Computed example of a mutant assay.
Amino acid sequence: MIKCLIIDPAHPSIIPLLEKIGVSPDYRPDITKEEVYDILGDYEGLIVRSKMKLDEKLLAKGEKLKFIARAGAGVDQIAADVLEKRQIKLFNAPEGNRDAVGEHTVGMLLCLLNKMHLANLEIRKKQWRREENRGYEIKGKTVGLIGYGNMGKAVAKRLSGFGCEVIAYDIRKNIKGDENGRLVSKEELFEKTDILSLHIPLNDFNRALIDEAYLSGFKKNIYLINMARGEVLPFKAIRKALESGKVIGAALDVLENEKLDTLTPEQSADFDYLCSCDNVLLTPHVGGWTFESYNRINEVLVEKIDIYLKALESKS
């Protein structure tokens, strides 16, 4: 029986799901990096979330590895080139948390446009300020999405009933528009966007892609949402765009550096500025992290593992 090491906390369903397809799970959510180095050679499978980077040095210890499964969407912490070289299959599960990301994006947008986060705090202080909390509607605006994969499409689907236009820009040739969102050129994205929402993976091309120059290219002043990876949108770029008024308000589920006790002096100054802004809404990277998605991610991963293992078996 194929043995699979699980090194991050997972929904309890992962164990029976793996056993059902003939995989023996070793659930070790408290394992240390040093321990992973010591025992990885005993396993054909590895399931991870975000505990550690899977670099070439660590992967060299997994001599028997047939597959690695990432319990989530992003695979930026995994050395994909090493896996390709060694013919180790890599799985992720964007289908498992795309619905959660779609809902969270719309929730943050509604909160930001209608100042709900501010009004709630003011009323608790017995401040009844109606005019100051007058908001804006999504209807009639153009929402521009950068990235139109699983996450972008989920957002567009949920926006379809709001009476807004959804356009999307994606450099991948295999991505198509649909009834909820229309693919456009970068020029049209810059021309029409009122609300910009980021849904791209982190890679060498996208790192710090949305910088001050990029944001200044939009014709209108925009609302900005980042549900992708913090490193695609540096602290400095957000601050400069807020200060200039190019960004009217920002909703951020991810940050350039999410280990807040390790911020550099420059990052710390920019982060403090963001925290001082009433037009900035922050959540702790929970956009895809609902109770439902926690389980659904397992179902998606195990289904992919099952298909892969059956294909391997049929070849042997």
Rank of each mutant, 00 (worst) to 15 (best):
C4Y: 05
C4K: 03
I6C: 04
H11M: 07
S13M: 07
I15K: 12
E19C: 03
I21L: 12
D26C: 11
R28Y: 10
P29G: 02
V36I: 15
Y37K: 15
G41P: 11
Y43R: 11
V48D: 02
S50L: 13
L58R: 10
K61G: 01
E63N: 15
K64P: 07
K66W: 08
F67E: 08
R70H: 07
A71I: 13
G74M: 14
V75I: 14
V75M: 07
V75A: 09
A79M: 14
A80I: 14
V82M: 10
L83M: 07
L83C: 00
K85R: 14
F91H: 02
N92M: 14
N92G: 03
A93W: 02
R98V: 03
R98E: 12
D99W: 05
V106W: 02
G107T: 12
M108P: 01
L112D: 03
L113P: 04
L118D: 08
L118T: 12
N120M: 12
E122R: 13
K125N: 12
Q127V: 09
W128E: 01
E131Y: 07
E132A: 11
G140S: 10
G144R: 03
L159Y: 03
F162I: 03
E165Q: 11
G177Y: 00
R182C: 08
L183A: 01
V184E: 08
E187H: 03
E188K: 13
F190I: 01
F190G: 01
K192C: 02
T193R: 04
L196W: 01
L196V: 01
L198C: 02
H199Q: 12
N206Q: 10
R207Q: 12
R207N: 13
D211N: 15
E212R: 11
A213W: 00
L215R: 04
F218D: 01
K219E: 11
N221G: 04
I225V: 15
I225S: 07
M227F: 11
E231R: 15
A237W: 01
A237D: 05
I248Y: 10
I248P: 09
L255I: 08
L263T: 08
F271C: 03
C277S: 07
V280G: 01
V280N: 06
G288T: 06
T290M: 00
S293F: 00
R296H: 15
E299T: 15
V302S: 00
I307N: 15
Y308K: 08
K310F: 06
A311L: 08
E313I: 05
